[in-house]
Write a protein that binds this DNA or RNA. Structure first.
Lengths: 189, 189
DNA sequence: TAAATTTCTTAACAATTGTCAAGAGAATAG
DNA sequence: CTATTCTCTTGACAATTGTTAAGAAATTTA
């Protein structure tokens, strides 16, 4: 629980009691590699803070699995629009490795919102950053080459390349696995 | 004001009094071609419903203007994260043609939220759809070719090609203006 | 309206990335 | 531990898209 504690207290100034109250609403959950946290079509009723492990968010298009995002330690993951508006999710969320999660349900999330103003503040920051991150990703795809996106990911999340199948990373970068293989080869030289 | 009225009443069931209350919070605003609705760095304090005209949302990267989105009639436009969280906007929003807008300020927006539950409902739908749209756009860039994105835009928003400089459309599609020129030529045959 | 400026198109060529096929390597199941 | 399956790499080639440069077309300004 330490990681989650740090994550919250680093972003909002909060007293111990409130922080403990928030933490008490989370339950631990473990996933085995390959397990699904969410399947497309279902309404997403929980949000997870990733303690350890990797999960990918993907959908299928033209018969191919396309990975939009891979979440790793210290990140929150959920199908945002499904979780916020309780509509069917288009995304699948699957564990790429064994995972340890801290999970909060939609019910407790709403309850916390009423009882702890700091949670609302934190929740808002989370949403804002998710939106901004998505926007930045979309923006990057408009003016960068695969090479540039690869370099950036290599710099910002090098651990991904060591812990996650390359095909999913390639998909997230918007390129063929073979192309990723070539870019990796170049970068090692 | 008719277009805005329709836009709201088509999405939430609402009585006349509440609808009129909401509409009364909007003020008309006209922009000349080239005028800015918002400049990057500034906190975005208003949201606009586009009655007529076209506006683009863009930022500069490596010295080039990159257009993330072009808004047209019957669409809402604002720098969402800046408007929602009152932080500095990274986006510029500029009129590409003369525009007639219906504008609501952040203050009145918040006020309406307290007074009209239906506004909250509508506002939520708007945000959810903006997020979903952005997600879909990002997703599309991962598995489609420029050709496919061009075809889709041609089908969904053909009027864009007749009313907006091609260079901005190319930017939004993530390709060079010369490439767009080629795709257009092909599609005419 | 005419001149100046900006935008768009075209063509040749270069660079990047995709596709296909084969084999090497790694992970998993029995 | 071994066989099987899945994943990754490599190379040859094709297709797409970017770049550069020039001229045509359209728009704006005076």
């Amino acid at each position: 629980m330490e990681l989650l504690k740090d994550c919250i207290s680093k972003q909002v100034s909060i007293d111990t009691a409130s922080l403990e109250k928030i933490l008490s609403m989370f339950e631990s959950e473990e996933l085995k590699k390959g397990d699904y946290f969410l399947q497309s079509g279902a309404v997403c009723r929980k949000m997870a803070f990733i303690e350890t492990g990797y999960l990918r968010m993907y959908d299928i298009a033209d018969g191919k699995e396309i990975t939009l995002w891979i979440g790793s330690s210290r990140k929150f993951i959920t199908s945002i629009s499904s979780y916020v508006f309780q509509t069917g999710s288009i995304w699948n969320i699957q564990a790429l490795t064994d995972c340890k999660l801290h999970v909060i349900t939609k019910e407790k999330h709403l309850l916390l919102g009423e009882q702890e103003p700091k949670w609302l503040e934190f929740d808002n920051l989370l949403l804002a950053r998710s939106f901004a991150l998505l926007e930045q990703g979309a923006f990057a795809h408009l003016h960068t080459t695969a090479q540039q996106r690869f370099d950036a990911l290599m710099k910002n999340e090098p651990d991904l390349f060591l812990n996650v199948p390359q095909q999913h990373i390639a998909s997230m970068l918007g390129i063929a696995p073979e192309s990723l293989s070539r870019l990796r080869k170049k970068s090692i030289k």
